[in-house]
Nucleic acid binder design. Sequence first.
DNA 1: TTCTAGTTTTGGATCAATCCAAAAACAACC
DNA 2: GGTTGTTTTTGGATTGATCCAAAACTAGAA
Lengths: 358, 358
Amino acid sequence: MTDETQRPHRTRRDSGNVTLQDIAAHAGVSRSTVSLVLRESPLVAKRTREQVRRSIKALGYVYNRGAAALRATRTSTLGVVVYDIANPFFGAMVAGIDAALNREGYVSFLANSEDSPERQQRFLERMREHRVDGILLCPAEGTDPALVATLEAWKLPCVQVLRHIGTPPYDYAGTDFRQGVGLAIDHLVARGHERIAFIGGHTEHSATRERWQGYREAISRHGLGYQRLLRSTVTRRDGFEAIQQLLGESPPPTAVVCHNDLVAFGAMLGLQRQGLTPGVDCAVIGTDDVEEAALSAPALTSIATHPYAVGREAARLALRRIQTPDGAREQVVLAPQLRVRESCGASLAHDRPLAATP
Amino acid sequence: MTDETQRPHRTRRDSGNVTLQDIAAHAGVSRSTVSLVLRESPLVAKRTREQVRRSIKALGYVYNRGAAALRATRTSTLGVVVYDIANPFFGAMVAGIDAALNREGYVSFLANSEDSPERQQRFLERMREHRVDGILLCPAEGTDPALVATLEAWKLPCVQVLRHIGTPPYDYAGTDFRQGVGLAIDHLVARGHERIAFIGGHTEHSATRERWQGYREAISRHGLGYQRLLRSTVTRRDGFEAIQQLLGESPPPTAVVCHNDLVAFGAMLGLQRQGLTPGVDCAVIGTDDVEEAALSAPALTSIATHPYAVGREAARLALRRIQTPDGAREQVVLAPQLRVRESCGASLAHDRPLAATP
DNA sequence: TTCTAGTTTTGGATCAATCCAAAAACAACC
DNA sequence: GGTTGTTTTTGGATTGATCCAAAACTAGAA
């Protein structure tokens, strides 16, 4: 007797799932050929390819990416770590990432670290277990700089986004916060301001440092005698309180640049609470240019940091790194833009001058 | 000769990866035992378990979830589809999902459908290929109601969130928008309003229908003669334009309830543009209670819809469905709450009454 | 000591794909 | 017809875990 009779009949598989084997049988070719068709290999003859395609449709086959990944060691997945997904800035960034990945057939795991290095660490370990092809990381505050080296040792390509830790070279996508603050101050100085304060940022991560550096450099570049940097966390309430503190000092600033738009909104509220008008009695400039900036009253002048574009660039970088793991590390730093609106006196200044014009 | 000599030496694996095999060799047990230890099986003796744990640490083993999933048909992954991740409401919802999943060792793929049924479809097919254990779906506008049945046929557990399509029974987590609008109108009526309009919602999906239904029911429940429902998309600009249109009508409304907070912010701006004060000349109530609501000027009264909690409940439902695929479908509908602030005249009414008090 | 019952451990098959070297099919030329 | 070269196709091994039935230990009672 042949061994055919011994092994159970196998045209329809034991489990309900249709596999390459089933398609191969249906199309009268081998497993390998079907696999080649699925991967669009040019090796397969046209007639065969078409026949296999027909069988795939006929049997309602669903590609099993997990099984493929096991052998091929590519999963077409990416891990994305942000520290505050509820912040609309990150929402826009994730949208940019999603759009870029989608085009390449990649999907992404998303995690919200809530700025906790421990949560972040747990997630990264889980990503390793899932064998993601790479990581997009907005490092949580207080992340050990050694993490970048750890990921390197894990052979997990990692692109840092917005904040960066560790020492170059690393892959990074972000915005030039330093330049952004510089732009804002140049604009204010051109409008005659001489006492410009900066509000916000409470911990030493790169995105804060860069803003402060931009502030200090611009102040000294313009030879201004006044310099005032007020640390704080970066909520609306912080802006609200900070501006009132600054107004109580003598001399008070005539303009403030804020860590982000939330702080700026708070600062505007604080001015209004004191019976003052933003853009008239004190200029206010925010950072990020969130949707609400254009629609607040008065409209907020803001340094646009392009979250969608940052996300898209970060995703591109990651895909490139996955293709060439040993290529030179890259840093994509987008140029910010100043969106001038009412809150820095743009269209109100003629009514009541903010400061002596040059 | 034995076949030992024929097969290549295998203590350290060919590929760089440490596998169960390697740990087994190191600990002097079998692959199966190591697997049992990893899955915390009570079958393994304490001594053995400890020895295996030591070997796992010593060799720096990383669990391969892909390989495990192939055999066990559980991936510990979930697909999440939203239609606008840049909206802070969804940000908060995703944060809730993330927190609930994290606790159970699950991770989630996130996709942004941008309200395109085609993008949504592509993503769902990809999720199927990745063999996710379930789907959390905020259906894109215009989604074919048959999609729910399709997912059912795919044997992919699906929990709908915020919007629902198809016919019950299905799993769903959301907020009772109908009740929310009812609460708002009850409050306004109690304050003496008789002409209450509703702004926003342009397409017939469940979340819009429920709001409209709540509006019409409340109006007729209170026996009000005035009824005005203005359709629109749901951006700030829509609110801005809608309120000005309503003010031009005779009689104009004395209060408006808005589809979401963005529309409400726009409506407040529109009032201010006309030299009117929200909460004094016309009451404004929003929906969602986003962070900004409490901090706008005047502070916005809003129907809180608890996005974080909705996300958390949706995730819980999904995990439950995965455990018992044939259990009864469940609907978790959270009760909204009215957060009363200045924009509906809460603390301003004594200055200048909005309407005759009862 | 043997038998039984309970506790641990194990090897082989399996999941569904890819990889790769070798075989088969085909065409072109002497 | 035989030889060579090119294009297609193939089967067996491999990836790294889990499943499962059977084997190997224990300990306690007869």
